[in-house]
Structures are given as C-alpha cells and as structure tokens.
C-alpha cells in the first residue's frame, strides 16, 4: 500500500515537473522550430508546431546576407582568447593562494570579488575613449583584454577553490624527494589540477560567449561577436522571424551543449565556491 502511494506521487511529480520544464524551455524550442519555417509560416495564424514544410533555407540566407560565419569566429576568438589569457594569469595566483596562504590571502580574494561589484557603466566612458584613441575599438584584441579583466576574479576564485582540495601533503612529499618548484608544478600539481582547470575553462567560455555589455558597446561590425550580431535584428526590415530564429539557434547551440555538460561547475564557479 505504502509503495503504491509513493509511486502515485512519483507519477504526479513527473507530470508536474515535466510540464514546468517544457514551459520554461518552450521559447528555445519554439525558436529552434521556427528556424525551419518559411517567413510566411513563421507568422501564420494559427501557428503550427511541427506540421509545416521544413526548410534549411534560413540558415543559408543568414550566412549569405550577413556573413554569419565571421561573427561566429569572432565569438570563438574572443571567448577562447580571453579565457586562455585569463587562465595563464590566474593559475599562478590561485596556486600561490592555495598552497602558500598568508594571513592576507582571504582579504586579497575578497577584494578580487569586490571588483566584480563595480557596475560596468562606471568605467564605460573612459574605456570607450581609451579604445577609440588607441585604435582598439571594434577589434578582437580589445575585447579579449576587457573580457579577461572582467572574468579574472571568477577564474582566480574558481581555480582557488579547486586547488584548495588538492592535499598539500602530496606537494610536501614531492618536495622532500627533492623536486624543484618547477618540477612540482609540472609533474605533481598539473595532473591533479587539470579537472579543475578544465571546469574553469568551460564556465568562462560560456560567460565570455554570452557577455553583452562590452561586446555591444565596443564593437561595430568588424569584430562584432554573435551577441552584437543578433542585436542588429532589433530593428529589421520586412519579415524576419525565421531568419532571426536560424541566427539565434546557431548562436546558442554550442553554448547550450557546453553548458549542459557543466551544470555542476556552473554553480560552483558563479557562487565563488560558496555552493558546491
């Protein structure tokens, strides 16, 4: 009897949870489906969910009309570039804070966190002028620099929480065996740190890919990543729902897949290790 009640509850839970899940996901599903419609079908009333003439035309048209691939590559270059640069700068810092902590380490970490609280508009004007005067406006390099800086605190924090979990005794043992600092890092620490570094990399690529303040304000066309490219659809001419959907689907698909693989790291990274 008891088992019967609980399996009944399980079915109710399933139905309710799936309904809410599908409702929350629906805008994405709808975008995906619309990307395969013709423009006329995209605004047809009543709308059709699945039974329309599927076409890939929108995808080709988005590429032909606005050189989609260029913006895609800008997104790739900017998100990977800023993430790798950030890791190169942050790994030594996080290593030092995790394995050679001083009484000030916690303060340094909290100070780094506090830099994230500065609203970007506080420095929009000088950054825009600096970029304009140094020719960095609308360049990939400029955006890589900015995104590295804004995500650096998150990278340091996330690496720090991962490195903290590596037992210090192992390092001491290596040191006793006469390993130098360089050897210690290459042969002992690196293999144990790789999973944490990989998670940090993944999360940071997602954050950089979706960043939509600096990318919108500091690019025009040449270096515009997908965030800025999609924004150009905000004042379109003529029918455009299907093309907007196709462009959107291509812009979100890679990150959606990456994100699904890294749900756990998402929580950990964005809560600065406070929730695991």
């Amino acid at each position: 009897m008891a088992r019967n009640v609980s399996s009944q509850r399980k079915i109710v839970n399933t139905v309710v949870a799936w309904t809410i899940g599908i409702l929350i996901f629906f805008p994405i599903l709808w975008t995906f489906l619309t990307s395969f419609k013709t423009e006329a079908q995209a605004i047809a009333s009543p709308p059709s969910l699945l039974f329309f003439d599927w076409t890939f035309e929108n995808y080709f048209e988005v590429q032909a009309r606005s050189d989609y691939f260029k913006h895609f590559m800008n997104s790739v270059a900017i998100s990977f570039g800023s993430t790798l640069l950030g890791l190169i700068i942050a790994i030594p810092a996080a290593w030092a804070m995790a394995f050679a902590p001083t009484p000030k380490t916690k303060d340094v970490l909290m100070w780094m966190l506090s830099t994230k609280m500065m609203p970007p508009v506080g420095v929009l004007v000088p950054m825009y002028l600096l970029f304009r005067n140094t020719g960095l406006l609308d360049t990939r390099i400029g955006l890589v620099m900015i995104l590295t800086l804004i995500n650096l605190p998150i990278i340091v924090w996330m690496l720090y929480t991962y490195f903290k979990e590596i037992p210090g005794e192992i390092l001491e043992a290596a040191r006793m065996d006469g390993a130098s600092l360089a050897k210690e890092i290459i042969y002992v620490l690196t293999p144990m740190a790789v999973p944490g570094i990989a998670s940090t990399l993944l999360l940071n690529i997602i954050l950089a890919w979706n960043e939509a303040f600096w990318t919108l304000n500091l690019t025009a066309s040449k270096a515009a990543p997908l965030t800025a490219f999609i924004a150009s659809y905000s004042s379109p001419e003529g029918l455009f729902y299907a093309k907007l959907s196709a462009a959107s689907t291509m812009a979100i698909a890679p990150i959606l897949i990456l994100g699904w693989f890294s749900q756990k790291q998402l929580v950990r990274g964005l809560t600065f290790g406070a929730v695991k």
Binding site: A17, W18, I20, G21, I22, I24, F25, P27, I28, W30, T31, T34, I206, W209, N210, A212, L216, L226, T227, A228, I230, A231, Y233, S234, F240, Y241, L244, S245, S248, A251, I252, I255, L256, L258, G259, W260, Q263, L266
Partner: peptide
Amino acid sequence: IVRILVIAPFLIMPTVAALVWKNM
C-alpha cells in the same frame, strides 16, 4: 532531462533571449 530543460535559459545570450521574447 527536466533539469536540462530548466537550466537552458541561463545559457542563452541576453540579446537572443530578449529578441525572441520581444518578437515571437
């Protein structure tokens, strides 16, 4: 699977999310 469905909107870039809601 439900968790994957629920987490999805967080991974969508803000410009896409806003334009999809605005238009569609």
